[in-house]
Amino acid sequence: LEARLEQANLLKKVVDAIKDLVQDCNFDCNDSGIALQAMDNSHVALVSMMLKSESFSPFRCDRNIALGINLTSLQKVLRCANSEDILTLKAEDAPDVVNLVFESADSDRLSEYDIKLMDIDQEHLGIPETEYAANISMPSAEFQKICRDLMALSESVAIECTKEGVKFSCNGDIGSGSVTLRSHTNVDKPENNVEIDLTEPVALTFSLKYLVNFCKASGLSGQVKLCLSNEVPLLVEYGLASNSYLRFYLAPKIGD
């Protein structure tokens, strides 16, 4: 494997966003890119990252390899990069280590680190292609604020999507609260748009603890996409350049 990423910062942000959910995981490398899929310890949430080969330049992966990496270790090494550094990831066939090289944009400094790999026996889950009943795009900072605000009142949030808009509501010991968003287009600042694409009304309840955790990815993308259908996990997607993505799935609460 040899994969050069223009922004070391991108991988750093991804790792920062997921490392409280998952600790050790395989980075599956093949000629289409670098993918990661892992469940959190409680098996309630699933992280799925795809960095497509087009996100790298150049990208070369001659044989499929799984790089088992402890994310705390990876985070420590990625913190050694400067914010504008270019990152090249390298691994041999049947590797013991993954090699990370940081170059400063003006190329005067080159730093190099090896991280020991681990054998991780990870269960891979098949995620069915789903036509969701509601697809909501909204500013990622807005979603983060809603989740944090409602978590002050309750441990779970009901998300209801109708023709009227999307309503986030909660009920707790001190009282209740809700935030409703309607479709909204801002021509000057499209990152502030709220887009609601609905084929059928949806109402589901989710644990806010996980949603707040997912929102650590807000720095990766100005917009977040929420996809919901009744009785299936919520998909929270942060889109990255070149069709790469960071996705989180969260099982709904049941029997309300």
Partner: peptide, 14 residues
């Protein structure tokens, strides 16, 4: 209170 189900009841191994 609603209960929390696991993700594996939705996504199968494989």
């Amino acid at each position: 209170k609603p209960g929390q189900g696991g993700i594996m009841s939705f996504f199968k191994k494989g």
